[in-house]
Amino acid sequence: MDTPIAECALRLIDEEYFLDDYQGRTPRWCTGCGDNAILAAVQRVCRNEQLPPEKTVFVSGIGCSSRFPHYINSYGFHGLHGRALPVAEGIKLRRPDLHVFVVTGDGDCCSIGAAHWIHALRYNMNMTVLMHDNGIYGLTKNQASPTSPLGLKSKTTPQGTQLEPINPVSVSLGIRNVSFVAQAADWIPDQLQDTIEAAFHHKGLSFVRILQRCPEFLPGRFDPWVQEPDRMLLLHHKDGVGISPDLAKIYRNKEEHDPSNRNRAREIASTYDPMPVGVLYRNPQMPCYEDLRKPDRFYTPAIVKRVLEREFDKFTIHPAE
């Protein structure tokens, strides 16, 4: 489990990772799918952070977004619908040395995996969760999801959905020991990358909801915000993400928001027009489950024997002397 120090030193000298080093298989997402932009942003973050591919694990569930681990060169775990988070927690608990990312979608996270989502926020383990929210089930071909807009006609809702969508950011902020909540959009790649970078740097579970366009089943879903930059609200702060001068020229609607202000974060989270993007909430003080549960000793056969003999003593009956 521990890498010898000599080997670490060797690698520092030897290796520099380039974007190519994170190239996995060729993505099979549809043309124009927002997932491509998210993948590119994540690969740039990996490169910038010089993450060794063998020390990085991308865990996903099932759905379009969950194909992500196949398309990046690292260890990947493309598991069960809705269950990416508990798998990732199991990995992180025993392997704090690994960089753990979770890639999930609105169906995977907010519907079938909703219980795990709530509890993952509560465990607050040090990992980055990217929730690709396109508001539709894509892989199963066009069914309403819990974040579909009210009235959306889909294969399962031919008359239009009748329930209000869930707001993933508001829900996340409702968890008492949530430690990082952000929102980003696939069509603002620089800001998306900065947000993922900030999420990666945060110690604790960072939840990033990424507004993601699905050109196949929900084209136009985000058109008003894509086409009218003024309908976006860019959050910036020294403890969140900044806004580059270039970006500031396009997106003039911005707010300096201190991510430690949870009440304001909740207000911002509840708005969608203008649509806020940036770091809504961040609390670096929140303890992580893996630290709270960190064993004060490491497993060795000698320790196991010593402890077990002591346990056996408690239950042993001895022959009469």
Partner: peptide, 19 residues
């Protein structure tokens, strides 16, 4: 680890085993 449900407990164990 007391997980949030039986499925999570199994998935958690699988994650630990995998890594």
């Amino acid at each position: 680890h007391q997980a949030e449900d039986e499925i999570a407990a199994c998935a958690f164990a699988i994650g630990s085993s995998y890594a």
